[in-house]
Design a protein around this nucleic acid. Structure first.
Length: 523
RNA sequence: GCCCCCAUCGUCUAGUGGCCUAGGAUACCGGCUUUUCAUGCCGGCGACAGGGGUUCGAGUCCCCUUGGGGGUGCCA
């Protein structure tokens, strides 16, 4: 019989805490883990770390799952998928943690501690005043189990602390190399809270073992946690997975990208920056460009290539090309990536993404969140008044746009009621009123032509406009611009032939008429 | 304060001792294309944090300084 043990087997995980939407930095962590798994043909596990009941946010698991799906990152085991190592919610694994807590207690590698949070806070404040950092002093003698139970009966909530070994610990890191930390840097950490829940450190170590995680790829903010985890693994007889600590992503200002940036910007009256994956979705980005962009934040292929689909990333990715330096999140460059991707994907894909964008935006309740200025009304209107064929044409006509809101800005007027068109005074002055109303004169000529024109295709209309130019011995601008203003209220629109074809003959004529009449009413 | 990590154009980065008068992308500036807004194309500006070593030779190796970041929770 052959051994079926695969020595190369790879299992990685992403373990978010359900406190809101998926953060863009978290998205990069997922992506890299996902890539490691897919590259190796291993498993990608999703685990929900909901051990802090005070920070739990309703619906956030669903939100995170949605964000992952939108990005195209699937998981082999986890919520809604199941798997052989479940449950995948830590709050449903309490018995498991208790069992290992017992083991550590029995083997004298952990003990009950009776200080209250208030006492610890006071001690910390005192240590800070003294200019140093607080180190928890292991009690001597240690509280007995009987004492802990008595305290609990008394209404106290004893915690369990892990005895950190008195020896240096070396973290072998696939990204940073070896990092050795001296024992003085650690005190005995709490592994079970007063409410009986495990702390992050403990649950994480137990689950990584039980879920057979082979590689842990996480943010650099976890580097100093890793020695603690290694010490616990040793005490419990667990294996130590391979570790890799990735650089952190910052704002252009150098501050850490955080959800609070949004509130700050709103307070200052500025548009809030996109921070969570969902922000980018609502801002009209393609998941392709987000994935591509964050992949290049800390990883590169070693050559000049910059465009990568998920499949191409899977092919090209390798851990040894992950960098060590923190990166700033350059939204300008992301925008450029998005422009490229919008031009690159198939019309079908672009239509699907645009429809998703409109749907997501239309579903936002303005009172939900004092977020950015989302074109909610416009999105609803477009959804109601168009179909797939129309949207495909609109997207084609707007080719070259950066993000989906640009499409709405450029072609949104198509979906307005004719009498809802608002004329931009500047545009009116520049292209219609100027030169003794030459623009209006042109509109009068065009109106007659439009009424008798039969072939209402973009090409034919384009030809009609060009022909008018020749007749009047003038440039395109003198003909196209007045039409633009009449039909859209401003000077921005797709090519003039496409614009009119998309709008239709009836509406074109109605809008031109209305524009001329408005002028007569207020000369 | 203590511990740890990091350091190339504004930003993301290539660079693994001679291919480097440092390459690409983005941003910015200029030009071309053009019926508006974009796109596209061409060109330009722009960096090895500083100081010591090692070496025939250093962006690349070592040390110090400086700067940035992380940790120091009954958060994850």
């Amino acid at each position: 019989m052959m051994s079926t043990t695969n020595t190369n087997f790879v299992r990685v995980r992403f373990a978010p805490s359900p406190t809101g939407y998926l953060h863009i930095g978290g998205a990069r962590t997922v992506l890299f883990n996902w890539l490691v798994a897919r590259k190796a043909g291993g498993a990608f596990v999703l685990r929900i770390e909901d051990t802090d009941r005070t920070r739990h946010v309703e619906d956030s698991v669903q939100k995170i799952l949605n964000d992952l799906r939108w990005l195209g990152l699937d998981w082999d085991e986890g919520p809604e998928t199941g798997g052989g190592c479940g449950p995948y919610f830590q709050s449903e694994r309490l018995d498991l943690y208790h069992k290992y807590i017992e083991q550590l207690l029995k083997s004298n590698r952990a003990y009950y501690a009776l200080e209250t949070p208030q006492m610890l806070t006071t001690m910390r404040e005192q240590a800070e005043k003294a200019g140093g950092s607080f180190r928890y002093q292991r009690p001597d003698p240690l509280p007995t189990i009987a004492q802990a139970e008595a305290a609990r009966a008394d209404g106290a909530s004893p915690v369990v602390r892990f005895k950190m070994p008195d020896q240096a610990i070396t973290v072998v890191d696939d990204i940073l190399g070896s990092v050795t930390i001296e024992p003085e840097q650690f005190d005995d950490l709490v592994i079970q809270k007063g409410d009986g829940f495990p702390t992050y450190h403990f649950a994480c170590v137990v689950d990584d073992e039980l879920m057979q995680i082979t590689h842990v790829l996480r943010g650099q903010e976890h580097l100093m946690n890793t020695p603690k985890h290694i010490a616990m693994q040793e005490a419990l007889g667990f294996r130590t997975p391979r570790y890799g600590h990735m650089p952190v992503i910052f704002n252009m200002s150098g501050t850490k990208m955080s959800k609070r940036d949004k509130e700050k910007a709103i307070k200052k009256g500025e548009p809030p920056p996109e921070i969570d994956v969902n922000d980018f979705r609502l801002a009209g980005y393609l998941p392709e460009s987000i994935v591509n962009f964050i992949a290049l934040l800390g990883w590169n292929p070693g050559d000049d290539r910059e465009q990568f689909s998920l499949a191409e990333l899977t092919e090209a990715f390798s851990m040894d090309r992950v960098g060590k330096t923190n990166a700033k999140f350059d939204r300008d460059k992301l925008r450029s990536f998005n422009t490229d991707w919008c031009a690159r994907v198939t019309p079908e894909r672009l239509l699907a993404a645009f429809t998703d964008y409109l749907t997501q935006v239309a579903a936002v309740t303005p009172t939900d969140d004092p977020g950015p200025d989302l074109p909610i009304a416009a999105a609803k209107r477009v959804l109601e008044r168009s179909d797939s064929a129309m949207l495909t044409s609109v997207l084609g006509a707007c080719a070259g746009f950066h993000t989906f809101p640009d499409v709405l800005k450029k072609a949104g007027f198509l979906f307005l009621d004719d009498d809802a068109i608002e004329f931009d005074p500047k545009a009116v002055k520049k292209v219609l009123t100027k030169n003794n109303g030459a623009g209006y004169a042109m509109l009068n000529v065009l109106q007659a032509k439009f009424e008798s024109h039969e072939n209402w295709s973009a090409e034919a209309l384009e030809a009609l406009v060009k022909q008018t130019c020749e007749e009047k011995d003038t440039k395109m601008g003198a003909v196209a611009q007045p039409i633009r203003v009449a039909v859209s209220g401003g000077t921005i629109s797709p090519g003039i032939g496409e614009t009119l074809a998309l709008l239709g003959q009836e509406k074109t004529i109605a809008r031109v008429k209305r524009c001329i009449e408005k002028h007569k009413a207020t000369p």
